[in-house]
């Protein structure tokens, strides 16, 4: 599904390149649940953003379902992104001015889904995450865990095949975190959604089927069954 070859990213600081990612090679199959770990500043978020097509590397090649991402037209890439990728953040990043219902609905607006269909889809999500009662509340009126549930609902509404999560449990207590992880596992196993998560917690990483460690922009070791390399 995803093949990264010789991906490097650097920032010029004082005229010298400061590498954030160095020659990353990584293959991810559809249906995997990958955990990215590593110390702070090792480039985890950067790598995730590159996979999520939110950021560009300085060098390297990226194939998504066999298509070279950096050779396609911007619009095509945008379509590919909208149809296939859902994002979840540590800081939830809900839109404060919109209520729960509207927040979940937003991605559909950008995919030109018809109004009646949108209604049904959002309704399904609210049901599934048990937040029907909260649909008229605004983000500031929700707890952190509830906000993250809304964030996940929003990431899933467009039925992506790849879910990217940057420290999804970072702001939650361990019980809330565990619930989210259970949910991820279920999504991965029952619906076949490919999941890549960045996490600091060894325990959360265990929910995944594979784990990679980043250190100073390089992949350290491959743990568990080595599917790709």
């Amino acid at each position: 599904m995803i093949a990264l070859q010789h991906i490097s990213k650097w920032y010029n600081i004082g005229g010298k390149p400061n590498f954030v990612l160095k020659d990353i090679n990584l293959n991810i199959q559809e249906g995997e649940f990958l955990s990215i770990m590593g110390p702070s500043g090792s480039g985890k978020s950067t790598l995730l953003n590159i996979i999520g097509m939110l950021d560009l590397p300085n060098e390297g090649r990226y194939d998504f379902f066999g298509q070279s991402v950096y050779d396609m037209k911007e619009k095509h890439r945008q379509d590919l992104y909208k149809k296939n990728i859902g994002f979840i953040f540590q800081a939830y990043h809900l839109i404060d001015e919109l209520n729960v219902y509207e927040n979940i609905e937003t991605p559909l607006l950008y995919q030109n889904v018809k109004s009646s269909e949108r209604k049904a889809m959002v309704g399904d999500m609210l049901d599934r995450f048990n937040i029907v009662g909260k649909k008229d509340l605004f983000p500031s009126q929700l707890s952190g865990g509830q906000q993250q549930l809304v964030g996940i609902a929003r990431a899933l509404i467009a039925k992506p095949r790849l879910l990217l999560a940057d420290e999804p449990t970072g702001n939650l207590n361990s019980k809330q975190g565990e619930e989210i992880m259970q949910l991820f596992k279920q999504l991965n196993e029952e619906e076949g959604i490919t999941i890549i998560q960045v996490t600091h917690s060894e325990k959360n990483a265990e929910y995944g089927s594979r784990k990679i460690d980043l250190l100073d922009g390089r992949i350290q070791q491959h743990i568990k069954e080595n599917i790709s390399l």
Binding site: L54, Q78, Y81, F87, L94, D96, T106, P107, Y110, R154
Partner: peptide
């Protein structure tokens, strides 16, 4: 800025 960033991640085009 933040809201626009979020919307972009959710698939909003520059035009919208």
């Amino acid at each position: 800025t933040r809201e626009f960033g979020i919307r972009k991640v959710l698939g909003a085009s520059a035009r919208s």
